[in-house]
Design a protein around this nucleic acid. Structure first.
Length: 222
DNA sequence: CATTTGATGTTCT
DNA sequence: GAACATCAAATGC
């Protein structure tokens, strides 16, 4: 059960602290590119991937964010402290994973939209039998959850220890970060809040007609 | 390769 | 009853 020949190697960096997420949500979304998301299921099986695509959801003032409905049963953990998971079901069929950001009660989060599989490839292929190629294992928010074994049981759990871990990975330079509007939403659909690694083959498809802009680091002025 | 279409069932109105 | 942070299969080049 150990030999997974095509795994790209284990990442053992320390998990990102909760303080990493307790910052501006757009910045967290950009900084999460390159980090490694790891899920350990009850049977001890490990699956992980490098985050290559994210979206920022900016709390109750963002019409596209689930926090607009307030603190309901579904959105309870979205309003929780920075550094926990918000996992919800969409279209009655697919789980989506978010990292909660910002101060408690704000309802901001970063949706992870795509991963590059790193460890546990064999598991992921089992969990996603419809994926013809490895690039299809995690190139979508529902796909990556299925591949990693993320589901509603992980809603609200911290991201610093099993069963969920987010670790620092190889940094992605600004020059390779592209920004577009968010995918699949109707409200606030023009805001540029989707971030991805430009040359990664593991990113989900950008819809036709979407404006692509180069990432510009916010000025450090204060 | 690109684009279209149907399935899915929970959540909120 | 409508909307939905999606996916996979089918169809057209």
């Amino acid at each position: 059960m150990a030999a997974a020949g095509s795994d790209r190697g284990a990442v053992t960096a320390a998990p990102l602290p909760a303080s990493f997420y307790d910052r501006d949500t757009e910045l967290v979304a950009r900084e999460l590119l390159g980090a490694v998301l790891e899920c350990i299921t009850e049977d001890g099986a490990v699956a992980s991937g490098r985050i290559v695509e994210t979206e920022a959801y900016l709390g109750s003032h963002d019409a596209a964010c689930h926090a607009v409905v307030g603190r309901t049963e579904r959105t309870w953990h979205l309003h929780g402290p920075a550094g926990i998971a918000y996992v919800y079901l969409i279209y009655g069929a697919h789980w989506c994973f978010n990292a909660v950001t910002g101060p408690e009660g704000q309802g901001s989060a970063v949706l992870v939209r795509a991963i590059e599989p790193l460890a546990g490839l064999h598991l992921m292929r089992e969990r996603r039998p419809s994926a013809r190629r490895d690039r299809d294992l995690g190139n979508g928010p529902g796909k990556l959850c299925a591949a990693l074994g993320v589901d509603g049981r992980l809603d609200g759990v911290p991201l610093q220890r099993p069963p969920l871990l987010v670790r620092a990975g190889d940094a992605v330079p600004d020059e390779r970060v592209v920004v577009t509007p968010r995918i699949g939403i109707t409200r606030a659909a023009d805001l540029p809040l989707r971030y991805f690694v430009e040359d990664s083959e593991f990113v989900s498809k950008t819809p036709k007609g979407f404006a692509r802009i180069s990432y510009r680091r916010p000025s450090a002025a204060r």
